[in-house]
Design a protein around this nucleic acid. Sequence first.
DNA 1: TCACGGAATATTTTT
DNA 2: TATTCCGTGA
Length: 571
Amino acid sequence: MLQRATRMLDSRCENVAGGTFHSFANLKLRQHGSAMGLPANFAILDRADAEDLIGLLRKEAAGQAKDRSLPRKNTLADIFSRAVNKSMPIQDVVGNDYPHFMDQLDTITCLQAAYTRRKRDHHFLDYDDLLVCFQRLLQEFPDVRRRISSAHRYVMVDEYQDTNRVQAEILYLLTDANKNIMVVGDDSQSIYAFRGANFRNILDFPSLFPGTRIIGLEENYRSVQPILDLTNIVIERAQEKYAKHLFTRKAGGSTPQLIEAEDENSQSLFIVQKIQEFAQRGVPLHRMAVLFRAGFHSFDLEIELAREGLAFIKVGGFKFTESAHIKDVLAHLRVIANPYDRISWHRILQLIEKVGPRSAQRIYDAIAATDAGVAGLFTIRLKHPGIERLAGLYQTIDPTAMRPVEIGAAVVQYYLPLLKQSFDDHPKRAKDLEQLLGILERYQRLDQFLTDMALEPPNISAEDRLVAGDVEEDRLVLSTIHSAKGLEWHSVFIIWALDGRFPSLYAMSKDDDMEEELRLMYVAATRAQEHLFLTYPRQVYDRSLGIVLNRPSRFVDMIPRDILEKRSVRY
DNA sequence: TCACGGAATATTTTT
DNA sequence: TATTCCGTGA
């Protein structure tokens, strides 16, 4: 965004501070966090790290209480996070969303306290902590608030409907000195309620900032009228919304189509054929996108695209940095940046044969006791030959003298044998590691790299090989709807518009969730400039639920044919 | 204490 | 279906 502004205006835009709430908070906490006793080299826990830590604590707690019905670590992480993002006490979250765990409430609350304590002891911040700590820093330390808020004379926020209470409070404090704030948002595009976003923030804005001027934007510069006619109908079905009716002056385009395909593969073949058709008419691949509700919905399509030799890039879903081998290498780098990063130590030690949780724990304790950082590993005497090798690795690494990419290369060298041992598909994974080194090449500082990997990882799917270099190859875009937010394409295909998939069956029991699914459909459909296709397989048996899904998505069902054309295809 | 295998269970979306 | 959890044997 800042780059685009620089191109359109002038280079002063490069000096604008910008980023996600999380990355901005991270920056400010590193600069000013010492005021609240936070060291500048705190480590950021991503979701998986947080779950690992919670898993450890969970095991300890279960050992004492012999409790077998405790929620899983992933559920616990959900509960803790939801409590923060919705600014609610744990018991309300459990009561509302996990009533079946109500009898475990005490243990859950204890675990959260333990988690909080453990994070503080090790200088870990998880995603939620970044926001909460930043908010506290601004709130409780007037000097810091004055410095930060006067350094930023104007504050602008995009996608305001996706902010939560904590973020709203951060903004309030951040504009303390100058009171210059502008936010842009569309309540109809709020799709992050699951992480605590509350589009009612938009409603509350005028009371939080008296004297607010509201500007309505109803002219759409993206889509042709036939597409808006459809999206206007879709969003009218929302229970709760601020009435608005989009219009455009763009002429041309075609009536959106609803395509019933014989089965999933037939759906894929239809997409492939349509895309080739458009491509032949001169539409570049990167101006077309296939959108879907969940990352795995595109698997079959990906196979067909590969078969036809159509280049594509997949955005969203399971990310590159989330795959085990990447996390392994990152863990090795993380202990260099922060030798007391217990989670990473645990991870890398357990990669070694014959080292399990128990030994890892003992070794970590021994290292920590030497108080010598990574070098502590050299002084402790242990019989594992694998440990010797790990010590050998760290002995060759001098973080002060080596560039990050050189350190990374040494780690990969060490890690490759372990990779071969544990993964059948190690050649593909080895390639990923080279890609990682390619990214690492661009960094001067290791800690900067690690922060970026946690906060702004390449939003590229794991199965997708990263683009070599920065060459802009012409590729079709496959994306989850969430990752498509704010983007636009000449032609858009929404696949799996099948009732039960989209809206997801899991959303059907709650009105709020269904509303969000509807808004998600609205977001997806409004990505299209000229052509819009919705497709669904005629009949799908969902074996985990034991039901047959055979209706088009209720969001686009029963719409007059002059607004949404209907067609069946078979291949 | 580790590694492995069978049983249980939840199942999306992202910073 | 895939992951996670737990018990068992080495």
